[in-house]
Design a protein around this nucleic acid. Sequence first.
DNA 1: GTCTATATAATGATAGAC
DNA 2: GTCTATCATTATATAGAC
Lengths: 190, 190
Amino acid sequence: MRLFNDQGTAAVSTNHVAAAAGISPGNLYYHFRDKEDIIRELFERMFATWDTVYRLPSNRRPILSDLDALITANYRQIWRHRFAYGEMAALLRGDPRLRTRYQVMRRRGYAGFKSLIKAFAASGVLTALPPTARELNVLTELCWVISEQWPVNLELSGRAFTANGIRQGIALMRMVLTPHLARGARADPL
Amino acid sequence: MRLFNDQGTAAVSTNHVAAAAGISPGNLYYHFRDKEDIIRELFERMFATWDTVYRLPSNRRPILSDLDALITANYRQIWRHRFAYGEMAALLRGDPRLRTRYQVMRRRGYAGFKSLIKAFAASGVLTALPPTARELNVLTELCWVISEQWPVNLELSGRAFTANGIRQGIALMRMVLTPHLARGARADPL
DNA sequence: GTCTATATAATGATAGAC
DNA sequence: GTCTATCATTATATAGAC
């Protein structure tokens, strides 16, 4: 994953992976059927983290700072797997099996995202959610796109993924959500 | 560009490009130094279109429908060059020269984006722009990320880039801009 | 400018010993 | 499970004739 994150999947050969892992190419092919299989495994590990990352405190009602924490955790998560998000379209185009799998997990993730938004609404953090289901979908989609793309976008612009970069990303998400925030919460400092 | 859009740059060899162009591989290398050079040329053609696409009517004040038209034109433009946006990070990582060039053009494009937003504010379409320069930057960045990523995102989710897909993209951009729209303009149907 | 032919190198992947 | 050795294929890129 480190190699893929740093150089992109196309620039990293199976020989490189084997060398970095400290094993022989032959041994690598004992553990993985082919290169696509390695990438699929990395995707699965990524999917597996989704359930734990996008989770609210179970012992109390979520508050605004939970929202910030969630956004931050999300960005870190995406950054950790940036090889995937930086060339997702190319990866999915080349591997139909991975594409199907991603789209299934994406739908699940999207539903989870919407649940989170609704949970923040129920707890009074977001008091002015869009009235129609359709608009709520648009809002969810908006959050999804920004979540998924902001860390890579940061890299593209030449900036680094630092605390400051994350802060800028939170500002973006806040600008989307502010019109839906409870009145008292809006003044919360970044 | 068609091959790259359909299969991704890594999956398309120079031999494929030559065959699709109806010339020999040797001839292709007479016209282009190497594969990166081909990609750089495609990027340059893309950059060249930016000035013509992101442009307001010169003979009158821009109105709300101009904003929608601009967003639509933008999405179409991105879609036409989706090979670039679908694997931008990987492409820039592998070609420092391209990275530098992209970042220069990106800064220029970002400044143009901000000018457009200000022009819509000056003409009364956007009446409630964020008060501080900092917030205006966040809004601009937000529009930029969505512009750049929505068409590819549409593809990733399994949807097609059709009139309907574009309409959904406009809805996204509208949700970002609505809090800043003039009151009378908000009721405008999609 | 365009071609054919080819050099060179790397890649993904396998065979088979241990 | 791990290795060495190697294969077949493919890709980029060049040489040189026309």
